[in-house]
Amino acid sequence: MELFFQQLLNGIMLGSVYSLVALGLTLIYGILHVPNFAHGVLYMLGAYLAYLMVSALGFNFWVAMLLTMVILAVIGMLIERLVFRPLMEAPHLNSFIAAIGLIYIIENGALILWGPDFKRFPAVYDQLYHFLGITITLHRIIIVLTAISLIVIMQLFIKKTTLGATIVATAQDRIGARLAGINVERVGLITFGIGTALAAAAGVLIGPILLVYPSMGSALILKAFVIIILGGMGSIPGAIIGGFILGIIESLGGGYLTTQYNEVLAFGVLVTVLAIRPTGLFGKAH
């Protein structure tokens, strides 16, 4: 039972990070209409920047996180403007392939700049708590709380503000949004900024728990894809709930089922689901 709760807690922690990444990915999906393959390397870049700020410049963790989010938002917007906007009218396949190009550029750029070795974030908030036989570090609690706060803030932003409404409207019908007088190019830019900042936040949060290395984004992006397919592409609640579910499945699966094939558990689930329901669990027929 203790193992169960320990793994469940780990799963929630992982899931909150997955949710952040998937939420950003699903927002950007509304603009691109293909999943942005490069989302994972931006998460990696976020983790690196924060690592450098904390370890080399001695920044406070939260200052580093905020700065990283701002920097990555700007990078996300640049990518939208320079790479994806020129492809807006082209077949979706082209955006998909351009994103693969971005992975090459950014992942190998990181390799050149910072080398292949794993970086360990200096420990922050490493106090241990014990209760009911479970051990947990303060940092893990902070991850969950910060991720959930960000998700709630995003939900409020999308539901309650006009800008948020324009993002949803553009995703639902781009031409309709243009005819309503919405500047969809500006919306695209902002959405990329926000989505990328969320990925960066996830990278910064998980950095001190996992290690920081150039290909850390590849493993994650595949899981994020799995989440948004299972949750229905473009669905915001689907991405959030899907993130938590995947985190918990992985954690419990790793504890009970298999450690050898743990990392592909999610992909196996996805392939099985797609074989049964070609449009995902919550996806509409199209």
Binding site: A165, V168, A169, Q172, D173, I175, A177, L179
Partner: peptide, 8 residues
């Protein structure tokens, strides 16, 4: 085709 926002 009206171009409404269907889920709003």
């Amino acid at each position: 085709g009206r171009r409404l926002f269907p889920e709003m």
